[in-house]
């Protein structure tokens, strides 16, 4: 019955158990190499393989494969440059890694029986917190206390500031939450929907001839949702990278 359980696909299980601490003492720590860890490694391998292989023959006139890697590069570079300016380009490897990781993880998740790394809130939250940490640390490192100008918009009358500044602070603090929940929610909901509809196909198909007819509708839905989820996988990676670029812009130019 696990085949039609829409939640089963998110289960994490150990591949190489690494258990630290003492369970009895309450200090147990499971650092096992799990299916999630495997797909993180696969994601890194796929992205690295793609980028390195496409750049291996650095021809003046690129082949299609080389062009694919170069277009990905310039796509992220242009996105970051337009959001954070020339100064923001020092974060290019970071933004590219984030975009690539989320994109490849999302797309790998579209394969049947594959685990979707980004369907776990802890992963997306960790990535979002990483982004916000980089923004805060670099902001203070680069601008010192002037980084706090971020919360004081220029040209706002002084008597409005007591209202505006808390709003700005709340909006800043909500960024990692929205960043992580958006990605997690989209991927999780999409995969559950896909699994529920494909589960209908299986369960209706088991009912005989009439069931086969009835299974046609959820089958069409499954195909349509698969297409939609492929779009969502790309769009969410793009959104994650665009928002990261915009937040990094705040770290580079806090007075805007």
């Amino acid at each position: 019955m696990a085949g039609t359980d829409p939640i089963h696909q998110f289960v994490i299980y150990d591949l190489f158990p690494i258990h630290l601490g003492d369970e009895a003492a309450g200090t147990a720590l499971n650092l096992s190499f799990t299916n999630s860890a495997l797909f993180m490694v696969v994601t890194v391998a796929v992205l690295t393989g793609f980028m390195v292989l496409s750049a291996s023959r650095s021809a003046l006139v690129p082949s299609r494969f080389q062009l694919a890697g170069e277009l990905t590069y310039s796509f992220v570079a242009n996105m970051l440059r337009s959001s954070a300016g020339k100064e923001g380009m020092k974060f290019f490897p970071f933004v590219f890694s984030l975009f690539g990781f989320v994109l490849v993880a999302n797309l790998l998740g579209m394969f049947p029986y594959f685990f979707t790394v980004t369907s776990h809130i802890i992963v997306t939250a960790a990535l979002a917190l990483l982004v916000i940490s980089v923004v805060i640390l670099y902001g203070f490192f680069r601008h010192g206390i002037k980084f706090l100008k971020l919360f004081v918009p220029a040209g706002v009358p002084a008597y409005v500031l007591p209202i505006v500044v808390p709003i700005e602070i709340i909006s800043f603090l909500s960024r990692p939450i929205s960043l992580s929940v958006r990605l997690f929610g989209n991927i999780l909901a999409g995969h559950i929907t896909l699994k529920v509809f494909s589960g209908f196909v299986v369960s209706l198909g088991a009912l005989g001839a009439l069931g086969w007819l009835g299974a046609l509708l959820p089958l069409i839905m499954t195909v349509a949702i698969t297409a939609l989820e492929l779009l969502v996988a790309v769009v969410q990676a793009y959104v994650f990278a665009v928002l990261t670029s915009m937040y990094l812009n705040d770290a580079v130019h806090p007075s805007h």
Binding site: F33, A37, M40, L47, S58
Partner: peptide, 26 residues
């Protein structure tokens, strides 16, 4: 803990591979 550990390892590896190998080449 496991996810965070392996995410840190794999993302750090990805960042290094991208920033030192792949992106400079492209």
């Amino acid at each position: 803990p496991s996810q965070l550990l392996w995410l840190a390892i794999s993302f750090a590896a990805l960042y290094l591979l991208m920033s030192k190998v792949a992106l400079p080449k492209v």
